[in-house]
Amino acid sequence: MSELVSAGPPLIEIQGVSKRFVKRLDIAGKIARRLGAGLEEETVHAVDGVDLSIDEGDVVGLVGESGCGKSTLGRMVAGIMPPSDGAVLYKGRDIASLSGDDKLEATFAVQMIFQDPFSSLNPRMRVEDIVGEAPVVHGLVPRKGMSDYVDEILTKVGLDPALKRRYPHQFSGGQRQRIGIARALAVKPKFLVCDEAIAALDVSIQAQIINLFMDLREEFDLTYLFISHDLSVVEHISERVVIMYLGRVVETAQAEALFAAPNHPYAQALLSEVPRLDQRKRDFQPIKGEIPSPLDPPPGCHFHPRCPQSFGPCSSARPVLKSIGPDRISACHLND
């Protein structure tokens, strides 16, 4: 894998990507402003200047609490949402600047698997059409060959092809998630963005789907961006882990190194609070407070109001991501 890396640009590169959502004023608000009320449009910095590069064959875990921008980042990588700033590069080329066949290639290459297997499948389409539609429309498979092709893909994800004439509601949660995976695989992607893909499933089914992801990775040489709030899953499956807090990356490291000794205070807190089977009758020592509103993030380091080690510069200067070891970066003033 590492040999492939040196050969060319990374499969996916994210350069200074930001996403802002602006809540526009309604008519009443606009009139009130014209009359002199101090109303401003509210802006949420969902993702704030994130850089990330993912090499072919890599499995990157993206971790953070709800509202930290991890799903928004995933959606921008998958091309569902354009970034406000910065660029997403596929094999060294900006996806936004591509056109024609190049654009199609990049679009097929990156597919997304969603959290909720109930709302991400069209309830009025048969499984056959859900999986087969895209490859037929885009000419990857002739219409006559669709049925066989769907059989093949369904078998790969562990579903009985005899069920392909059924509708999504006739399947269990785990099976639906397999249908979602089959749909993504049907256009022969290189890169899968899994946004909380197993969060809605039962424990025993989660294990089946994680195994499926690992099998598919070997079979199709897939690269993953695995977005999850469940650290134990991320620890298990990822090679590299990115931790986000309130729209910014706070630490990136190899999974083993990170779980052995997290550097950023937020990473430390997050890791220590994951319930584990081998920790019994523990006294939970939680970090204080909650994730602040992204409408009005604290100045300086976003984590400083909750950080047990915050000091002078934390409340004024934004910490930059610095290299603190091989393939490891962290954004904390304590490292200065």
């Binding site: 609490e65 709030h229 609070e273 319930p275 939970f284 020592q285 939680p286 909650e290």
Partner: peptide
């Protein structure tokens, strides 16, 4: 979230 879960536990 995990941090809130830890607080509640």
């Amino acid at each position: 979230d995990v941090t809130i879960q830890a607080q509640i536990l």
